[in-house]
Nucleic acid binder design. Structure first.
Lengths: 259, 259
DNA sequence: ACAAAAGTGTTCTGACTACACCCATGG
DNA sequence: CCATGGGTGTAGTCAGAACACTTTTGT
């Protein structure tokens, strides 16, 4: 499927009922990391003062997984990012589309109340971890702003998007126990301290430096470079990079096997 | 919502498009335990030689969670069972409804190809753990058989239902690490050996008796009764029961917190 | 020389493993 | 009285927590 050729906005307004899978949407919780804070990428709609997760609908000829990738790509211009499904949100009351109605009106849709987008939707939550610096947040056609928000200070989100983010973070924390992370979050080479900071931020607590190193190195997914980073007034740390082969193997097989 | 009053079959055949959420279904992997084997409850359709998971559609006024409960209840007559969402299956190719077409034809539906049920569906997988003896498997109106199948010997399943079961089992194994199980799988009072057998069966490996006891008791979710079970030609074991208060607390908070 | 931060090592504790030993019961 | 299976205990191992000591670098 050629993602670029799709005219998502037009499809949504006028062809939605046939082009998209009805009742189902996808929302991406895109985590980034900056200044010691865990951030989420959010959009502010042109016709709504509230913030929303980047989300979208699923084309009839598109796997749900692919739709999530497409949404991620549309918003971040990044490809090949690790995406993980974490939950389906299916309560009846979760969609009350007051803002959508106004949006449809202004876009010139007749009889907005019976437009397919006003129906009840369930949404599938995916999370992604991306390298903050590589993302250039650009609002799309139906958004006025696109920006990073601290996950701990979420205000003014539409619908149940705050709960979605919280559930996504909770899932991510859980997955940390048996899944490597960091590959898309950091540059090719980095000092261990940076990776530790990511773990600390996700988990919301400090970790012991020495113990973190031993544990993370015991996973065998990191290669140590002999090059060293310099700049601070202190001993230069080794730089590390992910061994992709081992990394993906660990992703598949898991890190800890309990019981 | 009064589950009993719903006429699910009639709704599916003739009112589906309006009554149900389109494109989305629910499938329940109902695990039971018998003769040292982990079983799944499956249905055989009247118009299809293959077996299927008990599944259903979601009424427009029904939360997805509720729909899963309803399906479980319809099939097992059990209420209050722990149900857990584990994955959404959303590939385009997962639904090719050859059998459904024949079923619709025989049920007297005109133009079956354009019937809503022939559309593409994504399905949400839930798993449940139930007490084998309490379930009286009864085929419903559109099934000819309903029976337990060993999870390790699955043959002749429709669509992707085999993969759904396997994913469900995989999820269950994972969840064992931070979630108590057993409450709905065993009678009120039981010897620890029975609980151990369940763990062994789910995990597919033997566990050390002594170590299992210490670990499971350390969770603090079991109460020891002074009554003893008798019958075998050996020392009578203590009987235990789940302390529901602590059990549900553990369900919410988790058992192991890593990192 | 000193502060800051990284590398490395040590001790302590607690959990899991494997196994041994004793106890109760039915045949 | 012995086989079976359950209750209890123990030595060994391993991983994590806490922390100490050494090394490197910029100021």
């Amino acid at each position: 499927m050629d993602v670029q050729k799709k005219n998502v906005l037009g499809d949504m307004l006028f062809g939605g009922a046939e082009l998209f899978l009805p009742s189902v949407s996808v929302d991406c919780v895109i985590f980034g990391f900056h200044a010691g804070e865990l951030k989420v990428l959010l959009l502010k709609g042109k016709h709504d003062p509230k913030w929303a997760l980047p989300g979208g609908f699923i084309y009839q000829d598109e796997n749900v997984e692919e739709a999530a990738s497409r949404v991620l790509q549309e918003r971040t211009q990044l490809t090949g990012i690790f995406l993980r499904q974490f939950h389906l949100f299916g309560d009846v009351k979760r969609t009350e589309q007051k803002h959508a109605r106004r949006w449809l009106e202004e876009a010139g849709v007749e009889d907005p109340d019976s437009h397919w987008i006003m129906q009840r939707f369930v949404t599938i939550g995916y999370y992604a971890l991306v390298e903050f610096e590589k993302v250039n947040p650009v609002p799309d056609e139906y958004s006025s702003e696109c920006d990073w928000h601290n996950v701990l200070e979420l205000r003014n989100l539409i619908l149940d998007h705050k709960q979605i983010i919280e559930k996504g973070l909770e899932s991510l924390r859980l997955h940390l126990n048996f899944q490597p992370i960091g590959l898309n979050l950091l540059p090719k080479e980095f000092p261990l301290k940076d990776l530790q900071l990511i773990y600390e931020t996700i988990l919301g607590k400090k970790l012991d430096r020495s113990n973190f190193q031993r544990k993370i190195l015991s996973y065998g997914i990191l290669d140590r470079k002999e090059k060293q980073f310099s700049g601070g007034s202190h001993r230069a740390p080794y730089l590390y990079s992910f061994n992709k082969k081992k990394y993906f193997k660990a992703l598949q097989e898991g890190l800890n096997k309990e019981w």
